[in-house]
Design a protein around this nucleic acid. Structure first.
Lengths: 116, 116
DNA sequence: ACACCATATTACCATATGGTAGTATGATAA
DNA sequence: TTATCATACTACCATATGGTAATATGGTGT
């Protein structure tokens, strides 16, 4: 059988990208940047995360090219450069909705079974 | 400013989903299932992963509803139920390509700078 | 019953990682 | 220069997790 082989190197890159999106704090930061660029202080206020923590996560998000670092006067502004992250989240949300629907259907079936 | 607030609970679910996709072994297993259902032994052969390891990952993939478990005679077949994972991977791949292009452009600019 | 095969589970180790306190850096103002 | 503010960095700890060996489970055939 002929299957399109994906190189281990490519899989590594993809996994690494997903890993960046697999932490609540980072998703929270990305959401806070959806409406536009913010400096670190603003991100800290909006997300309620610790300063060192935000700095760490912003570095990770910058390294994979999801956000861009822009020093501006005293502060540093961060801006989303990779808008596809929201598309990804959207697809996942849709899928999670489907899962929930299926689960509720299973529960209904169980209920019907109990009523027999 | 009015921003659509995403509930922490929803963010948790999304992060959890991404986390499932953030491991090379699991992506490898998913790729091996792209061409159709396979039993555990076949998955082990194709991926080269250990038996216990594959079993563990299949359980995780099943729990989030990405694959479906189907006992069949002596063996157990696994099949992808959530085809959106491949769409996700595709989007990520496209994005990674963009990143690589931009990096090579930066290198070109550096080269041009050296030639001055 | 027994042996055998396929799959799942458990226990364990090594590593990775999120959070945080403390510190460093760097810019600006007095 | 000194003080102050914004951001980054450096240990450090606690937890989570991937991999694996050993064992358990469960079905099938003899």
């Amino acid at each position: 059988m002929l299957t399109t082989q994906v190189s281990p190197e490519a899989l590594n890159r993809i996994a690494e990208y997903f890993k960046v999106l697999s932490e609540v704090s980072r998703l929270h930061i990305l959401c806070s940047l959806k409406s536009g660029a913010k400096n670190v202080t603003e991100i800290i206020e909006v997300t309620g995360l610790g300063q060192a923590n935000v700095s760490k996560h912003l570095k990770i998000l910058t390294q994979v090219g999801i956000v861009k670092r822009q020093p501006q006067g005293v502060s540093v502004y961060y801006e989303i450069t990779d808008v596809s992250v929201f598309k990804l989240c959207e697809i996942v949300c849709d899928r999670l909705s489907v899962n929930l629907e299926q689960q509720s259907q299973h529960l209904e079936h169980l209920d019907a079974f109990k009523r027999l």
